[in-house]
C-alpha cells in the first residue's frame, strides 16, 4: 500500500507538471512594454515553485516508500541533521528564494505603478457599470467634460451623465463601447466606476486594476501589437459579471483616426 502511495504521488507530481512545462495552457502573449519583467518574474517563480513542489513530493513519496511496513526488529532512526538542519534549510533555501523574488518583484511592480504616465500619453477614460465598460475620449480640446451622475441615463445612451447642452468641454467628448488605442503610444487610462466595484483586466496587456467606487484611479500602458483583445471584469459585480466585457482594438495611427471619425459620427 505504501509503495503504491509513493508511486501515486510520483505520478501525480509529474502529470501535474507536464502542462506547465509544455505551456499547454499558458499566459496570453504579452503585447505591452512593461510586461517583460512580469513574465520573467513569473517564469522564475514557476521554476522555483515547481522545483520545490516536485522535490518535496518526491521526497515525501520516497520516505513513505522507504519507512513504512517496518520489520519487527527495526529501530527508529533520527534524521542526521535534526530539526536544526530543517530550520536552516527553510531559512536559507526559502528565505533566499523569497528574498530574491521579493526584490526582483519590486522592479516589475515599480515599472507599472511607480512611474508616472508620460506627458504626451493619450488620455482615455473608462467607466465601469453593471455590466459594461464605456470609454471616453476627450476630443480635440483635450479635456473631459464634467460628469453629472444624476444625468446618467442608459436609455438615452448618456452613459457618462454628460450635459452637452451646457458644458462646453463635453460637446466634443466621444463616448464608445469599444476601446481603441493607437499602437506604440502610451495610454493614460483614467478609471472610475459609477456603481459597484469592478476590475479592468487585459491579460495580453499585463494590466489588471480594480475600479473603486468613489475613487479615481489610473493606469498607463503602451500596446505594441496590432490586434483585438478582450477586456474583462474580474471583480464580482453582480449577476452579469461573467458577461461584463469590452474589446480593445490596438490600431495603427491611421486606422485609429478613421475609427475615431466613425465613432464621432455615431454620437
Amino acid at each position: 500500500m505504501a509503495k503504491f502511495f509513493a508511486i501515486t504521488i510520483f505520478v501525480i507530481a509529474i502529470v501535474s507538471a507536464i502542462p506547465i512545462l509544455r505551456h499547454t495552457w499558458w499566459m496570453a502573449e504579452d503585447i505591452s512594454t512593461h510586461g517583460a519583467p512580469i513574465d520573467e518574474q513569473m517564469s522564475e517563480t514557476m521554476a522555483e515553485a515547481g522545483i520545490s513542489f516536485l522535490a518535496s513530493q518526491f521526497i515525501l513519496g520516497y520516505f513513505i516508500w522507504k519507512f513504512s511496513n517496518p520489520k519487527p526488529g527495526d529501530k527508529i532512526k533520527t534524521f542526521p541533521g535534526g530539526a536544526k538542519a530543517m530550520v536552516w534549510a527553510a531559512f536559507l533555501l526559502v528565505g533566499t528564494e523569497v528574498l530574491a523574488l521579493g526584490v526582483f518583484g519590486v522592479k516589475a511592480w515599480a515599472n507599472v505603478y511607480f512611474t508616472p504616465p508620460a506627458a504626451n500619453a493619450v488620455p482615455v477614460e473608462v467607466q465601469a457599470g453593471q455590466f459594461a465598460f464605456y470609454f471616453r475620449y476627450p476630443g480635440p480640446d483635450g479635456s473631459f467634460g464634467p460628469i453629472h451622475p444624476d444625468m446618467i441615463n442608459e436609455a438615452n445612451q448618456n452613459f457618462y451623465g454628460l450635459d452637452t447642452d451646457h458644458d462646453a468641454d463635453s460637446k466634443d467628448d466621444v463616448v464608445t463601447a469599444e476601446m481603441a488605442v493607437p499602437v506604440n503610444r502610451e495610454i493614460h487610462l483614467i478609471m472610475h466606476s459609477k456603481d459597484v466595484g469592478h476590475s479592468f483586466f487585459v491579460p495580453e496587456l499585463r494590466v489588471q486594476q480594480d475600479f473603486v467606487p468613489g475613487m479615481d484611479l489610473s493606469v498607463h500602458f503602451t500596446a505594441t501589437k496590432i490586434g483585438r483583445y478582450e477586456i474583462v471584469c474580474t471583480q464580482l459585480c453582480g449577476l452579469g459579471h461573467y458577461n461584463m466585457k469590452a474589446y480593445l482594438s490596438v490600431l495603427s495611427l491611421e486606422d485609429f483616426d478613421a475609427w475615431m471619425k466613425k465613432e464621432k459620427a455615431m454620437q
Binding site: F63, K77, T78
Partner: peptide
C-alpha cells in the same frame, strides 16, 4: 525529516 527513519503504519 521526522518521516525519515520512521516505522510508519499505513
Amino acid at each position: 525529516g521526522s518521516l525519515y527513519g520512521a516505522k510508519l503504519r499505513i
